[in-house]
Design a protein around this nucleic acid. Structure first.
Length: 812
RNA sequence: GCGGACGUGGCGGAAUUGGCAGACGCGUUAGCCUUAGGAGCUAAUGGAGAAAUCCGUGGGGGUUCAACUCCCUCCGUCCGCACCA
């Protein structure tokens, strides 16, 4: 760094202060401009931000500044997803109260955000762990409770022994805890749920409205909801006036059902095996399978095992008696926990049938090669022709599926149904650092919701929060002991807290009236500002947070609280920043902190490099050398401003053209796909051209225009430097109050164009011709071109093709 | 197993509708400037070749005057879901 290099240390704080002073990011509710809500996923206040986080905020800041210049009334708020385990774990380890550490981290992170030059309307800051926020999280719980969408039930749940808490299905990844990566086990407990399954179909259908979401995220949500259409069939029990119902998506294979299987958790098992001679063996087997808990079932492909119950059921379409088994490969959570097994046409059933010598019967034949049940080595799961299926024989199995379903519905032995993979959202957490669930248990009245006027249910501050499998709040007597809101008798409070995803499912609404004491948000204001125009965050929230937010929004819509039923119109998921081949994390020790980088090169350099590193939706490897490149470029631009144009020279139409081409390219790159990397490279090209033009001598007007364009086009990326240079160019006011430039179409059209000449598909010559040359003249020129004639020689021209202003293709 | 994305120099990555492959940057090499350079400037930089030219976008095949781009097929990488009936 020499004395001539770009003095960011003086410049950056100056402009940060200036933006605060003029309230650049403070949204004016009375502005007549069109609204633009630019939202970034609010961060968890961990100890410090790294450059990976920065990518999110920098992208958002570029969008906000760009949209401002495009004439929108931009809202970019910021807040803190401040409840959650890490703060509590730190408290257990270091003895610092989660509130203290969270608020301290918030202060630190706010400084980091400022240092990056990212601007927010801080007057709208929300912090989810503060009572004026979680009061309304609790209020939302009450609304869902009123609507019957929040309920309590005993359930086998995912239990993380290390975090000592329950996890939602969404938080179990391959049988492991999403947070600490330990094996999850099963535990039966009374838990609170939100009935998200009631919205499964709408959450699925409305994905089609989200055209501006990444396809990947929509597919992930679709798979997660997991709708499947099929038929529910009742199989009467032999010797009893009862039936077992099962669900199948392959009703066309019903004639090939040679046995039925139950999940070990099936509630009817005890009754079914009453009096069976090997009852104890069966129970022992059931017990064994149950112990193969969620975790091991998910991680390891375990050997299929089963046991015969001694009972039989009747296949209702052909009255055939088939044996009833219990097996470890049937899941209670999906369908009815009972499956009609068709070994010939289902791989799992096939393997099981082979192992236990159960009959295999082909009912769909391969049209190309006849199947043989004795010799087949796997199930045939493709399309085919119906055989051994009574009146349905000969049909195409697709058609048969419909015909059989019709037949069963008519005969009342089965019914078309839809099943979802989505489970209800388990929101209870046996931890301290979360919003208390506003429920009171009274000896007389039972489960009673807290009155709205008594909210918030304050989280007590003095609590022993070392975990012991129960909510730490259970120890806080003053908290637990209360009176019943209905009968005033002695009562006790619910001691579980809510999943932090409840907090984050509605924060984007609170930004519109963060200080409102009377309601969570104001109807008219949120209707005006929502849906969010641009949401930016990590793809890791593709399912959890985004699905929950969509659900809560739909609930609000049904409650008449809002007029929109999707919260986020456009979603952008930025890629991770990788260092040494891995995601940055403190434990891996590969964290790149922005603090030293900003101190060494300034925020603009770090911003520029972060944006230039690659397409923002893709993961990118951080390279310290690349930062130097960004620094060099900024200095190159800086020198351009500081040094006068020495050799004032001739008119330069090329520079003017390049200027306008760059305006076009940068504008489209930002607007279209957020391709900041190519936008920046286009500006680099323009800067290179300015230098070249200066060397060759350029007129002051073209140079000035190019320079101004460079500064404006750079402004969303390197705002501090842009402001400073704008001032040096003798302009008043903030550059961000300026309208984004539009390009001059005429200037882009060149006087002369380069025409590529291909002969038999190879480039053989390049010639320059007037922009508006006629086709005849062009042909004339091409055929008389020296290079072209040497290639053509005496051969006849078979084809002569012209792509206007681009190329000529000749076939010999 | 199912679903999706992708495969381009030493590296990150460019390439509107098929139309000059490798923009821009990093790195490397040579030179200039400088007391010095981890600053700046100039030039070179996919491979082979003295050159004309030829070969090059994971492999093979196809469509086309023309293919990184479209079609078929194989291989590989990444991601999501996964005993879902």
């Amino acid at each position: 760094m020499t004395e001539n290099s770009y003095p960011f240390k003086k410049i950056e704080p100056k402009w940060q202060k200036f933006w605060r002073k003029i309230g650049l990011f403070k949204m004016d509710p009375r502005s007549p401009k069109t609204k633009y809500y630019c939202l970034m996923m609010f961060p968890y206040p961990s100890s410090a931000l790294h450059v990976g986080h920065g990518r999110n905020y920098i992208i958002g800041d570029v969008v906000a500044r760009f949209m401002m210049m495009r004439g929108f009334n931009v809202l970019t708020p910021m807040g803190w997803d401040a409840f959650g385990l890490p703060a509590e774990n730190a408290a257990i380890k270091d003895g610092i109260h989660p509130k203290t550490s969270s608020l301290r981290n918030i202060t630190r992170m706010k400084k980091q955000l400022d240092a990056w030059g990212t601007g927010y309307d801080w007057s709208r800051e929300v912090t989810s762990c503060l009572p004026d926020y979680y009061k309304w999280t609790q209020w939302i719980f009450l609304k869902l409770y009123e609507k019957g969408l929040a309920y309590k039930k005993k359930a086998a749940v995912n239990w993380c022994p290390s975090c000592q808490t329950i996890l939602a299905n969404e938080q179990v990844i391959e049988g492991r805890c999403w947070r600490c990566d330990n094996q999850v086990t099963e535990k039966v407990l009374e838990q609170w749920f939100f009935k998200i399954t009631a919205y499964a179909q709408r959450l699925l259908d409305d994905l089609s409205k989200l055209k501006e979401w990444p396809q990947r995220v929509r597919t992930m949500q679709q798979n997660w909801i997991g709708r499947s259409e099929g038929v529910r069939i009742d199989f009467p029990l032999e010797g009893e006036d009862k039936a077992l119902s099962c669900f199948t998506t392959r009703v066309d294979t019903i004639y090939g059902a040679t046995y039925m299987v139950l999940a070990a958790e099936h509630p009817d098992i005890e009754k079914l095996i009453e009096g069976a001679p090997n009852r104890d063996d069966i129970l022992a087997f059931v017990e064994k399978v149950r112990k193969q808990n969620i975790a091991s079932r998910a991680t390891a492909e375990i050997e299929k095992e089963g046991i015969f119950t001694g009972r039989y059921v009747i296949n209702p379409v052909n009255n055939r008696q088939i044996p009833l088994w219990i097996a470890n490969y049937v899941l209670m959570e999906y369908g009815t926990g009972a499956v009609m097994a068709v070994p010939a046409h289902d791989q799992r059933d096939f393997e099981f049938a082979k192992k236990y010598n159960l009959p295999i019967e082909v009912v769909i034949d391969n049209p190309n090669e006849a199947l043989n049940a004795q010799t087949m080595r796997g199930a045939y799961v493709d399309e085919g022709v119906m055989v051994n299926s009574a009146q349905f024989d000969g049909l195409d199995n697709r058609q048969a599926m419909e015909k059989i379903a019709d037949f069963m519905e008519k005969k009342k032995i089965g019914q078309r149904t839809v099943h979802y993979r989505l489970r209800d959202w388990l929101i209870s957490r046996q931890r301290y650092w979360g919003a208390p669930i506003p429920i009171i248990y009274c000896e007389h009245c039972g489960q009673v919701p807290v009155n709205e006027k008594d909210l918030p249910v304050l989280l007590p501050e003095k609590v022993e929060f070392r975990p012991h499998g129960e909510s730490p709040l259970k120890q806080a007597r003053a908290f637990v002991n209360t009176t019943c809101p209905k009968c005033k008798a002695k009562a006790r409070r619910e001691t579980d807290t809510m999943d932090t995803f409840v907090d984050s499912s509605w924060y984007y609404l609170r930004y519109l009236s963060p200080k409102d004491k009377n309601r969570p948000f104001e109807r008219e204001i949120v209707n005006k500002w929502l849906p969010v125009d641009q949401y930016i965050g990590g793809v890791e929230h593709a399912i959890l947070h985004l699905l929950y937010s969509r659900f809560i929004t739909k609930v609000f819509y049904d409650l008449g609280l809002v007029d929109f039923d999707e919260p986020f119109k456009r979603l952008f998921t930025q890629g991770m920043i990788i260092k040494s081949g891995a995601k940055m994390s403190k434990s891996k020790g590969n964290v790149v902190s922005p603090d030293e980088l900003i101190a060494k090169y300034g925020a603009d350099t770090v911003r520029l490099y972060t944006l230039f590193i690659g397409p923002p939706e893709k993961d990118a490897e951080w390279n310290d050398r690349g930062v130097e490149g960004a620094w060099r470029f900024l200095n190159r631009v800086w020198r351009l401003i500081k040094q006068p144009n020495v050799a004032e020279g001739k008119k330069n139409d090329w520079l003017k053209r390049k200027t306008h081409l760059t305006i076009k390219k940068v504008t489209e790159d930002i607007e279209r796909e957020f391709h900041f990397n190519t936008a920046i490279s286009a500006i680099m090209e323009l800067v290179n051209e300015i230098y070249k033009a200066q060397d060759e001598g350029v007129d002051a007007v073209a140079r000035e225009e190019a320079l101004e364009a460079t500064v404006i086009l750079l402004s969303p990326f390197v705002p501090h430097m842009a402001e400073e240079m704008w001032q040096l160019l003798g302009k008043k006011n903030s550059i961000f109050e300026l309208p984004w430039p539009s390009y001059d179409k005429e200037a882009i059209q060149a006087e002369e164009v380069l025409i590529v000449v291909q002969i038999n598909g190879r480039v053989r010559a390049k010639i320059t011709v007037p922009y508006d040359i006629t086709e005849e003249d062009l042909k004339e020129q091409v055929l008389h071109n020296e290079k072209v004639t040497t290639w053509i020689k005496e051969k006849p021209v078979k084809k002569f093709l012209i792509v206007p202003r681009k190329l000529v293709s000749i076939v010999l």
